[in-house]
Design a protein around this nucleic acid. Structure first.
Lengths: 254, 254
DNA sequence: CGATTCATTGACCGGGATCAAGAACCGTGG
DNA sequence: CCACGGTTCTTGATCCCGGTCAATGAATCG
């Protein structure tokens, strides 16, 4: 069974057996459990290790001086949190677990070694950074031009797709262990208004929520509500090889 | 006289003479003039070259299906537009000139060669990508938590700072050749409301605008209005060596 | 079984959108 | 030189989406 890291990176390119083995080894040595709201790395810190989400859910966020929190990205299993830290001096934002999560630590010098001597792996990490940047750009459009309803629909669709791509959901149901306040911090809305939009999406039978288990009842309808375009995710291999494993997982959704 | 590219990259690290020469050569061979509104590269394209802004002003943008345009970033002189294109298959957004601008083209294979064999230059481009990502994150906070007044103030302060950092302004006045509609597309506001906020900023004597020439009359006041934090720009060398050329240009502003 | 967090709903308000109409500023040609 | 058509800027009037405040359930947990 491949590590979630391999599942994620293979959306971009196929790996040699050696590269795949290295990536699997990367996340298997040191693993640590984090609880809900627990910080994995904080703004201003410089950790000697980099971190990769293996299970659960984490987010990039920033605390503002007025006490409010802005969530800038959700990190699903397989997602490197801070691969760039060995280039930059310090984090300009924090990362915390939104639910009980298992996080792998990778020593910085092992990373550096891989980046210098294994171009296939270096390329995959580059790609990951650029995909993150694309997601951020999409979020700017989100906040600039979509209304509250579209934003919430978009966020749900994107998270569903990314979870599916790394294989943590098989059908239309998935664990999305966050509160409506978290959603509000991610969309720039208030919890009250997030609630109203979720009520609407349920009334329209696009989604269903039972506890922390979410179900997309009508993927096409949700996608339409979200005005979802997929190119920004740069799923290069999925596009070239629709019959790859990653392609099968995303069939009909992108 | 160093190329704007060197000026920009030196905010991050000092270069060896050889690296500096290479970077200067990079932008000196093929240069092209683009007019206002002219596209430099379009969404979905894959150019064999990468582009670097030498003078004028460009922006990253995306056209939405309803016809509106979202500007996601301003590209000041020295800014690489699409250095990532040799990793990704295609652009997920477009880039156009906002004013008459000179753009350098660099053949992709020369770039690839530099990235593989000149770690100092590769690091600088990596850093640039990560700085762009930081700017995007800041913009998300911007749109999520700042009101219209703060957004406009923030945008002006940031552009002023980045222009100053690459040496295209010496005092408090600078050419900022964009329309209020452009500002609206960048902030997610309407042109009407952008105008009202600019009126207010002028009434408060924080800025002055004469044609396309903008003047920051009260940098401290503008910074306060913008609630500006600088860490996300990762001006590493400026922080470590405040007496470097780049540091002198930004003295008292960061 | 209290206590605390989270979800839900209603009433009201305000910032920014929308609509509309002039005014100022172009480049162009007669 | 002025006349012109087209942007761009400016200002006013009105409206609505989403914020704010508040109260009540529902769920989770020590």
């Amino acid at each position: 069974m491949d590590s979630p890291l391999v599942m994620k990176m293979e959306q971009y390119r196929r790996f040699s057996d050696e590269d795949r083995r290295s990536l699997n080894d990367l996340t298997s040595s040191r693993q640590q459990e984090y609880g809900t709201r627990e910080d994995i790395i904080r703004e201003g810190e410089h950790s000697p290790d980099i971190h990769i989400v293996l299970s659960g859910l984490a987010c990039r966020y920033k605390l503002l001086e007025n006490g409010s929190r802005q969530i800038m990205a959700f990190l699903v299993p397989g997602h490197p949190c801070d691969a760039e830290i060995f280039i930059l001096k310090e984090m300009d934002h924090s990362i915390c677990a939104l639910a009980p999560s298992v996080i792998a630590s990778v020593p910085g010098d092992i990373m550096r070694d891989l980046m210098l001597h294994r171009p296939g792996i270096a390329l995959a990490f580059w790609w990951n950074t650029l995909q993150d940047e694309g997601v951020l750009r999409e979020r700017i459009i989100d906040e600039g031009r979509r209304d509250a309803y579209g934003r919430i629909a978009f966020l749900i669709y994107e998270v569903m797709l990314r979870m599916r791509a790394v294989g943590v959901i098989k059908d239309q149901s998935f664990d999305f262990p966050i509160t409506q306040s978290d959603l509000a911090d991610a969309t720039g809305l208030t919890p009250v208004h997030v609630n109203r939009m979720l009520v609407k999406l349920r009334e329209e039978e696009l989604i269903a929520i039972e506890g922390r288990r979410w179900t997309v009842l009508n993927a096409a309808g949700l996608r339409k509500a979200a005005k979802f375009e997929v190119s920004y995710l740069h799923l290069d291999r999925v596009k070239d090889e629709p019959e790859s494993e990653a392609g099968k997982r995303l069939k009909g959704l992108i």
